[in-house]
Simulated scan of single mutants.
Amino acid sequence: MTTLDTTTPTGGIRTARHGVLRLGLARVYYEARMYFRTPDSVFFTFLFPFIMLAIFTAAFGSAGNIGTAPDGSGGVSVGAYYLPGMLAAGMLLSGVQNLAVDIAGEKSDGTLKRLGGTPLSPLSYFIGKIGMVLVTGTIQAALLILVARFLLDIALPTDPSTWLTFAWVFLFGVIACAFLGIALSALPRSGKSATAVVIPIVLILQFISGVYLQFYVLPEWMQNVASLFPLKWMAQGMRSVFLPDSFASLEQNGVWDLPLVALNLGIWLVVGLVLSRVTFRWIRKDS
């Protein structure tokens, strides 16, 4: 039987790739475990969408359904309307906010410097962080949907093709946000300033992208600004999954426009990948 000679260039490259992947997957477990051991991360990125959905439902539920016809029929409950936005916000918080703050802290306290002196490559480190966001984001989304269905009595889609749309919007959105979080971690000058730098950016995006405010009531210029960023497209994609087709007329172009959603999320995924690789350093340049 012929065996692969790992001393050849091809065998060596293949072995190196396997080593990078193996280290990256090992980091996923470590990162996810550390995430759930950090109370502030769990509260502000994992539980925050649950809390906001409960607040909106309790505060505005008595006002009646959103999107009702002139005769008072139709529409959806307040909780059902805000569910897509909270799912999109959870993706943004898990990826952008959590990673930007977390990596800036690791850079400030010397964790990244120590990792840079080990066999761990930046790619393995990225795999660990992105894998952690995928794991925690999936758990968060699943629990949020279960809470919406069984505690808030929100009807869920039954068409398998609709859930397929949910899957690709979620996957594109989470990975893009993870890369952008890695890139954004280069902006704060220290771990202490990371929260002050990152949270206002994330909060503004949520207000202008249809998470906390009904997107169709925002001025056109604000909708145009929101369209430059991925959260608007993540929220629009999620609304296409969980809201009736009649709500498509309330979107900026009057349709769900899922191909445009996919295009914009794909562009941001590539942009995030490039920015994260270009800006990532084990230590700051000015250290």
Rank of each mutant, 00 (worst) to 15 (best):
M1Y: 06
T3M: 13
T3A: 15
D5P: 06
T6L: 13
T8H: 10
P9W: 04
R14P: 03
R17G: 13
V20S: 05
L21D: 12
R22D: 14
G24K: 10
A26F: 00
E31K: 04
A32Y: 13
F36N: 13
R37C: 08
S41C: 05
S41H: 10
V42Y: 07
F43M: 12
F44Y: 15
F44E: 04
T45L: 12
L47V: 14
L47P: 05
L47G: 03
F48R: 03
P49R: 01
F50R: 02
T57P: 02
A63K: 06
G67Y: 08
T68M: 08
A69F: 02
A69N: 15
G72Y: 00
G74I: 03
M86K: 01
S94A: 12
V96S: 04
Q97M: 08
N98R: 13
N98Y: 12
L99D: 07
A100E: 07
V101D: 01
D102E: 15
G105V: 02
S108W: 06
G110T: 04
T111K: 04
R114A: 08
L115M: 09
L120K: 11
S121F: 05
L123P: 01
S124I: 02
Y125F: 07
I127E: 05
K129W: 10
K129N: 11
I130P: 09
G131C: 11
V133Q: 09
T136I: 10
Q140S: 14
A142T: 15
A142F: 14
L143C: 15
F150A: 04
P157A: 15
P160D: 06
F166Y: 13
A176V: 00
A176T: 01
I182R: 08
A183K: 04
L184G: 04
A186K: 09
P188T: 10
S193M: 13
A194P: 04
T195N: 14
V197Y: 09
I199W: 11
I199S: 06
I201S: 03
I201E: 02
L203G: 00
F207T: 05
I208D: 05
G210E: 04
Y212T: 01
Y212E: 06
L213K: 00
V217Q: 11
L218F: 12
E220M: 11
W221D: 08
W221R: 14
W221L: 13
A226E: 09
L228C: 13
L228M: 06
M234Y: 03
M234G: 03
M234F: 01
G237H: 00
R239M: 15
L243M: 12
S246K: 02
S249Q: 14
V255L: 01
V255G: 09
P259S: 06
G266C: 05
W268F: 10
L269Y: 03
V270T: 10
V270L: 14
G272C: 07
L273K: 04
V274W: 05
L275G: 12
I283V: 07
S287T: 12
